[in-house]
Amino acid sequence: GKELVLALYDYQEKSPREVTMKKGDILTLLNSTNKDWWKVEVNDRQGFVPAAYVKKL
Rank of each mutant, 00 (worst) to 15 (best):
L29Q: 00
Y9F: 13
D36G: 10
V49W: 01
L27Q: 00
S15D: 12
D44K: 11
P16Y: 10
K22W: 09
V5C: 12
S15Y: 06
L4Q: 11
A7L: 02
E3S: 11
T20D: 04
N43V: 11
V49Y: 01
R45T: 08
A52N: 14
Q12P: 06
R17L: 14
Y11T: 01
S15I: 05
Y9V: 13
P16W: 10
N43S: 11
R45M: 07
W37E: 04
E3I: 13
G24K: 02
N43K: 14
T28P: 15
N31P: 03
L27A: 08
R45W: 04
G47V: 05
Q46F: 08
E18H: 07
V5G: 13
W37A: 02
D25Q: 14
A51N: 03
K14Y: 05
L57K: 04
W38A: 04
L27I: 08
A7K: 01
R17D: 14
P50C: 03
E41K: 09
E41C: 11
D36V: 14
G47S: 02
E41H: 07
G24F: 05
L4W: 14
Y9A: 13
F48K: 03
V19N: 04
Q46R: 12
Q46H: 09
D10M: 04
E41R: 10
K22N: 09
Y11F: 08
V54R: 00
R45Q: 08
K2N: 11
L57Q: 04
K2D: 08
D10K: 03
W38H: 03
S32I: 07
D10N: 09
G24N: 06
P50T: 01
P16D: 13
S15H: 13
A51E: 03
D25L: 05
K2R: 15
V5H: 03
K56D: 05
N43M: 11
R17Y: 14
P50N: 02
R45K: 12
I26V: 12
Y11W: 12
K39P: 01
D36L: 15
V54W: 01
D25E: 12
G24T: 02
E18N: 05
L4S: 06
D44Y: 09
F48S: 03
K22F: 11
K23P: 03
Q46G: 06
P16Q: 10
T20V: 03
A52G: 12
P16N: 10
P50D: 02
Y9C: 11
L30N: 02
P16E: 11
N34F: 08
L30I: 15
Y9P: 00
D10V: 02
G24R: 02
D36Q: 12
E13S: 15
V40T: 01
L29R: 01
D44R: 09
D36T: 14
K2E: 10
K14V: 08
V42R: 15
L57D: 04
E13M: 13
W38V: 07
P50G: 02
F48G: 01
E41I: 09
I26G: 01
E18L: 05
P16F: 10
G1F: 13
Y11P: 01
D44A: 08
V5T: 03
I26D: 00
R17E: 14
S32M: 09
V40I: 08
A7P: 00
Q12M: 13
Y9N: 09
E3L: 11
T28E: 13
K14G: 08
T28D: 06
G47P: 00
A52P: 08
D10H: 06
W37G: 00
Y9M: 12
E41V: 10
E18K: 04
L8K: 06
W38Y: 07
V54N: 00
G1V: 15
V40G: 00
D10R: 03
L27M: 14
V19C: 08
E41M: 11
L57I: 15
Y11R: 02
N34S: 10
A51M: 05
V19M: 13
T33S: 15
S32N: 09
V49K: 00
W37N: 02
P16R: 09
A52F: 09
V5I: 08
K2Y: 12
G1W: 14
K39W: 15
K22H: 10
P16S: 12
T28W: 13
K23S: 08
E3Q: 14
E18D: 06
P50M: 03
Q12Y: 15
Y11C: 01
V42A: 14
K14H: 09
K39C: 11
K22T: 10
R45P: 01
E41W: 07
M21C: 06
D44C: 11
A51I: 03
V42P: 01
E13W: 05
V42T: 14
P50S: 02
F48C: 11
E13Q: 13
N31F: 06
P16M: 09
Y11K: 00
K22E: 06
V54K: 01
K23L: 05
K56G: 05
E3A: 11
N31V: 09
V42E: 04
N34I: 06
W38G: 00
D25N: 07
M21A: 02
Y11H: 04
R45S: 06
G47H: 02
L29A: 02
W37F: 06
E18P: 05
M21E: 00
P16T: 11
I26H: 05
P16C: 08
K35C: 10
L30G: 01
N31Y: 07
K56N: 07
K14F: 06
T20H: 05
L4N: 06
A51G: 05
G47A: 04
V49R: 01
K56M: 11
V49S: 00
E18I: 03
N31D: 15
L27F: 07
L57C: 13
K35M: 11
L29Y: 02
W37Y: 07
L57Y: 09
V42N: 15
K2Q: 11
E41L: 10
V42L: 15
M21I: 15
E18M: 04
A52Y: 09
N31G: 07
G1C: 13
F48I: 07
D10I: 02
E13I: 06
D25R: 02
F48R: 03
L4H: 09
L29E: 00
L6D: 01
Q12S: 12
Y53H: 07
S15V: 04
V49M: 01
Q46L: 08
R17A: 13
K55H: 12
Y53N: 05
